[in-house]
């Protein structure tokens, strides 16, 4: 191919009008080796030499980016397996995964908080089923479930019609264990003890006497009232005060809030409620 419109490298010579283009190879080799070309070389070659010198010129702004990272890698102790090209990638991977990993507990906590708020709202509105409403009544002071509702938890006597046979229902005992004594579920636990008077089928124990277990005596060295061997149904208190675990205090308060120094109610808290329940052996 020839002619004035052809590319220079498609012509026989390197430079236009210069035959025998392959003869320029020694000069091109000199350029590649960054050696100075003879002053008599074609001007195009001198231009090319300037271009290549500029390409290999001194560092410009931005040519030294990454120096801090490289120095940090140099000063870091080497890993036992040596540097691996996968190492920086895995490090980047960890960096990108870390926030995602941290979001999961946050999302779970937010979901639990939302569920708790919803449940509390429903409890205060009174829209929960009776057993759950009762639990909310005991724990957070929500309104008690309506009287005579089916499935009414027992041992708390919010309904005056509660019969002693209902007191022995195991469901509220388990519920109370969770809500009143969260730190202990040992058999000696005041609320968990099967001899717990409040869950005893004998109603006179229910509102007046704590269980005489050894754990309770250790935890509460104050003189405990002696249990009455002959229970009387008359001693069972169906009053709202006994419904709040018989503490004789504000029924809307959880147990832990009523006795902040001890997670378990003391014997004095089993004293007769303001409703006038008589408790044999307990000084009025």
């Amino acid at each position: 191919m020839s002619g004035p419109d052809a590319m220079h490298d498609e012509m026989p010579g390197f430079f236009p009008g210069r035959p025998g283009g392959e003869h320029d190879e020694p000069l091109l080799d000199m350029l590649l080796e960054r050696r100075p070309i003879p002053p008599g070389a074609p001007p195009e070659l001198h231009d090319l030499a300037r271009m290549l010198a500029a390409a290999a010129g001194p560092a410009e702004p931005g040519d030294l980016v990454g120096e801090d990272a490289a120095r940090a890698a140099f000063t870091r102790p080497p890993s036992p397996a040596g540097a691996s090209p996968a190492a920086p990638r895995s490090a980047r991977h960890r960096l990108t995964e870390r926030p995602a990993r941290g979001r999961l507990p946050l999302a779970a906590a937010l979901a639990m908080a939302a569920a708790g708020l919803g449940s509390a709202t429903a409890a205060y509105v009174g829209a929960l089923p009776s057993p759950i409403q009762h639990l909310a009544h005991v724990v957070i002071g929500a309104p008690p479930p309506p009287s005579g509702a089916p499935g009414q938890p027992l041992g708390v006597g919010s309904s005056p019609a509660a019969s002693p046979s209902q007191v022995s229902s195991p469901a509220p005992r388990k519920t109370l264990r969770v809500s009143a004594t969260p730190t202990s579920s040992k058999p000696g636990n005041w609320l968990w003890n099967s001899a717990n008077p409040r869950y005893s089928p004998k109603p006179s124990y229910a509102s007046c006497h704590p269980a005489p277990g050894p754990t309770q005596h250790q935890a509460h060295p104050s003189p405990a009232p002696s249990p009455t061997p002959t229970p009387s149904p008359a001693h069972f208190s169906p009053s709202p005060s006994s419904a709040s675990l018989g503490t004789g205090q504000n029924p809307g308060q959880p147990l832990a809030a009523q006795d902040p120094e001890s997670p378990r109610p003391s014997a004095s808290s089993l004293a007769p409620s303001p409703s006038g329940t008589t408790c044999p052996g307990v000084p009025g």
């Binding site: 390409a55 290999a56 001194p58 560092a59 410009e60 931005g62 040519d63 030294l64 980016v65 990454g66 120096e67 990272a69 490289a70 890698a73 140099f74 080497p78 890993s79 040596g82 540097a83 691996s84 090209p85 190492a87 920086p88 990638r89």
Partner: peptide, 30 residues
């Protein structure tokens, strides 16, 4: 070396600076 390395990598890799960083990590290791 870094200026020449970056100029070369900018020719053959769009993410030249990342590749240069990986290169120096391997150089440091070896």
């Amino acid at each position: 070396v870094q200026p020449a390395l970056l100029r070369y990598l900018r020719l053959i890799a769009p993410d030249a600076e990342d590749v240069a960083g990986d290169t120096w990590l391997q150089v440091v290791g070896g």
